[in-house]
Nucleic acid binder design. Structure first.
Length: 563
RNA sequence: UGGGGCGUCGUCAAGCGGUAAGACACAGGAUUUUGAUUCCUGCAUUCGGAGGUUCGAAUCCUCCCGCCCCAGCCA
């Protein structure tokens, strides 16, 4: 059991409360079935993770419950198989398992068509031949009722004939649509004879050219849910107004099963965006290098950044489910990550900005093997040996020529501890006479302090990390920061590009890291002590050119004090 | 100004008529060979506002205020 596991319970939110009540009242014969229904028109992001954790989480928590993965692929113009594959990978990576085979709304096209015919026969749907513009005009406004389409009272026979010919491809796109006949005066605009089928002569990624009419979301989704025997159809708030339509379709069609749609608020995260359209824009305009850019809030971006499935799941658990619109501080996500990585990431040393240190009293060609703990709180994670020699690198920022009183790292005449090695004292600062830049430090070491303690027990406040110049290996390190400078990049309708953070990526072409990392493979996550958690970039790292992404920094109270 | 929602700590979020959980953040302090971790401590006399019902209200009623969503042949 870890800190993360023991933290709490699966929370109880209003949706789980409803489900528990339904189980108690035997509403669905004790059955609980959810579904995660992405449209394959983009990559999944952390907001989808919230929905995934909810739907699949419920399936895991309730006895005998299931969760389907269903692709809502009714718009062939926007959907691609590439996205389908990416979505499957993401769900799997998060550690969830869909029930049975993957479902596709397109699997139901034939059924959907038959249901539409049924609707027409019942006088509940008609083919409308108004243009898109005309339909908009007839729809009325938010405050004024709409008016009936002149085609609203076509005979069943004519509707049947027209609809069949729509399917056969006899008509151009936009010339006719099939509409539900509900109420043009409804205060709910979704009920003003909504479109349920439109003509699209587009190739579908799964059905090819078998169809040239495609069903609309509102019509498709509820029937798909019903066909799969879903009991609780969970979606986001903006579909609340669609619920009466969802119910109308199922009631009118008298489907054998009538799932309950329940809405919850979508996730917003500070300093980032959460809409597929805008994320796509970040990619297409080159503000991000791709959907899996480590700065992206996509699942694939987070994965590449070094986020773990566990940290994302924990995050989704922590933020809860409600109907309140909210924006969660990214700090919460980072805290979940740190909780997990602190527990599980092995510690290593790496110097991002090397400053050469020559230990003048250390024997010229001597090399000692120092024992290092792989995790100070977890001896079971073992130890490793690190070579120590006369010339080492330390972090440039760990030395100050004129340090303030509270700075307890290295300075002229000051003594610090090199982690798990020796105490050193700075005796000389070597500078470039022309520029005044510090070139290297000359130090002495205390041979008595091997391992990091001395017989006299003298106190050394600072402990800094180091690598042996002779043994360290170079690595490229990418320091990531938030993509946007604004908490809400779209505040007041602003163009989010105006608040892009120019420093969201800082490249360190040649950091020096301990040799034990030479074989680190893609995705391997470590803590570079005192700096943060880093992971081997799965895309660009090569054995002869290691690339690390900074996943998240360590908390740094010193930096905070310094502000 | 039609319809549908939502308003509990800086940010999330429990609470469901019996006298404000928890998390993140923040502020102190202790321990520490990572200024990390860990560990203590503090952090809403008050639940958008105003009335009312009640012995008792964040929870019930009334009115008001604020915010979000809806007029795609997108999902």
């Amino acid at each position: 059991m870890t800190h993360l596991d023991t933290e709490m319970s699966q929370g109880s939110d209003f949706i789980r409360t409803i489900i528990k009540d339904d189980i108690l009242s035997d509403k669905h014969k004790g059955k609980v079935a959810t579904r995660f229904p992405p449209e394959p028109n983009g990559y999944l992001h952390i907001g989808h993770a919230k929905s995934i954790c909810l739907n699949f989480g419920i399936a895991e928590e309730f006895n005998g419950a299931t969760c389907n993965l269903r692709f809502d692929d009714t718009n062939p113009e926007k959907e691609e198989v590439e996205y389908i594959e990416a979505i499957k990978d993401d769900v799997t990576w998060l550690g969830f398992h869909w029930h049975g085979d993957i479902h596709y709304a397109s699997d139901y096209f034939e059924d959907l068509y038959a249901y539409a015919v049924q609707l027409i026969k019942a006088g509940k749907a008609y083919v409308c031949s108004l243009s898109a513009d005309e339909i908009r005009e007839y729809r009325g406004t938010l405050t004024e009722p709409g008016k009936d389409s002149p085609y609203r009272n076509r005979s069943v026979e004519e509707n049947l004939d027209l609809f069949e010919r729509m399917r056969k491809g006899e008509f151009d796109e936009g010339s006719h649509i099939l509409r539900a006949k509900i109420d043009m005066a409804s205060p709910n605009i979704n009920l003003r004879d909504p479109a349920i089928y439109r003509i699209r002569k587009a190739e579908h990624h799964r059905t090819g050219d078998a169809w040239c009419i495609y069903p609309m979301y509102d019509y498709t989704h509820c029937i798909s849910d019903a066909m799969e025997g879903i009991t609780h159809s969970l979606c986001t708030l903006e579909f609340e107004d669609h619920r009466p339509l969802y119910n109308w379709v199922l009631e009118t069609l008298k489907t054998p099963c009538h799932p309950q749609q329940i809405e919850f608020s979508r996730l917003n995260l500070s300093y980032t965006l959460m809409s597929k359209r805008k994320l796509l824009q970040l990619v297409s305009e080159g503000h991000a290098t791709g959907w899996d850019d480590p700065r992206m809030p996509t699942i694939s971006g987070l994965r590449r950044r070094g986020y773990t499935p566990r940290s994302i799941r924990k995050f989704c658990e922590r933020i809860g489910i409600s109907k309140k619109e909210s924006r969660i501080d990214v700090g919460v996500l980072e805290a979940c990550l740190r909780d997990d990585l602190n527990e599980n990431a092995p510690r290593v040393m790496g110097v991002l900005e090397p400053l050469k240190v020559v230990i003048e009293n250390y024997p010229e060609n001597q090399v000692e093997e120092m024992d290092m703990m792989n995790h100070p709180q977890k001896p079971e994670m073992g130890t490793r040996k690190l070579p120590f020699s006369k010339v080492i690198y330390i972090e440039r920022s760990d030395f100050m020529e004129d340090p303030p009183k509270k700075f307890f790292r290295l300075g002229p005449g000051r003594e610090v501890r090199l982690r798990s090695a020796y105490y050193i004292t700075c005796t000389q600062v070597v500078k470039d006479p022309a520029t005044g830049d510090i070139l290297e430090l000359i130090c002495t070491y205390d041979p008595e302090s091997r391992g990091g303690a001395t017989p006299d027990n003298r106190k050394v406040k600072g402990t800094i990390h180091w690598v042996s110049a002779l043994h360290a290996i170079p690595a490229e390190i990418r320091l990531y920061d938030r993509l946007f400078m604004e908490d809400n990049p779209e505040k007041g309708g602003a163009d989010f590009r105006a608040s892009l953070n120019p420093d969201s990526l800082t490249l360190i072409p040649k950091a020096m890291i301990e040799h034990t990392l030479a074989q680190a493979g893609p995705g391997y996550i470590v803590q570079f002590e005192r700096q943060g958690y880093f992971c081997v970039d799965a895309r660009d790292s090569k054995p002869d050119h290691l690339v690390f992404n900074r996943t998240v920094t360590l908390k740094d109270t010193w930096a905070k004090i310094n502000q």
